[in-house]
Amino acid sequence: MSQQILPAVAAAIFNNKGEVLLQRRKDVDQWCVISGHVEFGETVEQAILREIKEETDTDAQITRFIGVYSSPESQTYHYTGRTVQYITTYFEAHLNGCIATGFSNNETHELRFFKPDEIPGEMALINKNWLTDALDNNNTVFLR
């Protein structure tokens, strides 16, 4: 079985009610923040803006760098024939427009904003501090 370390990006996106955007991913049929891989030749900033556009069909802007997540406990995924540990750069971003009602595509089954105390239980593997870190208003940079 092969083992890899790959760069990834993720974003916490809030609306004006303080609700966080989650994506029900088609690949695992679980909720998650917008996230994805960094492609060759792009920066982490370019990668997260591309992922947001791909997964919501909406442009965005980065508003804050939250931190870097590399803990094997939350960043290791087991696939058929390989195991990947992602080094994830986590941002807060703001959508520049509205998501089309009922939007879905080959990666996104559903998009929905949730109140922080009503996050669904069926979350994809993610660092346990993802929400509290995103809600931190002290401009702390997290290394987890």
Rank of each mutant, 00 (worst) to 15 (best):
A60P: 08
A8G: 15
I119N: 04
G121P: 00
H37D: 14
Y69L: 11
F114Y: 08
D59S: 09
H78M: 01
T108L: 11
P72V: 09
T89S: 11
V9I: 08
F142P: 13
K26R: 15
R82W: 06
P7W: 00
F114V: 04
N15M: 11
F65G: 05
V44E: 14
E54R: 13
W31A: 04
L21R: 02
Y79D: 11
I126C: 14
G18M: 09
A134G: 12
V44W: 00
I52A: 05
E42A: 06
Q61G: 03
N127K: 04
E45S: 07
L125W: 03
I66T: 12
A47K: 12
D29I: 05
A93E: 10
A12D: 04
I48K: 03
D57N: 14
D133A: 10
Q75F: 04
E55G: 01
T89Q: 07
Y77C: 07
E42S: 12
E107V: 09
P72D: 05
Q46D: 10
E51V: 14
M123I: 15
P116H: 13
H109S: 04
Y86P: 04
P72E: 11
Y69T: 09
A100F: 00
F114D: 00
I34H: 02
G97L: 06
Q3N: 08
F103H: 04
I13V: 14
I34L: 11
P72W: 06
K115E: 03
E73C: 02
E55K: 14
R25C: 06
R112A: 01
V38E: 13
V44L: 08
T89E: 12
A10E: 14
Q3K: 10
F91D: 07
R25W: 07
F14K: 01
V38T: 15
I5E: 15
R50E: 10
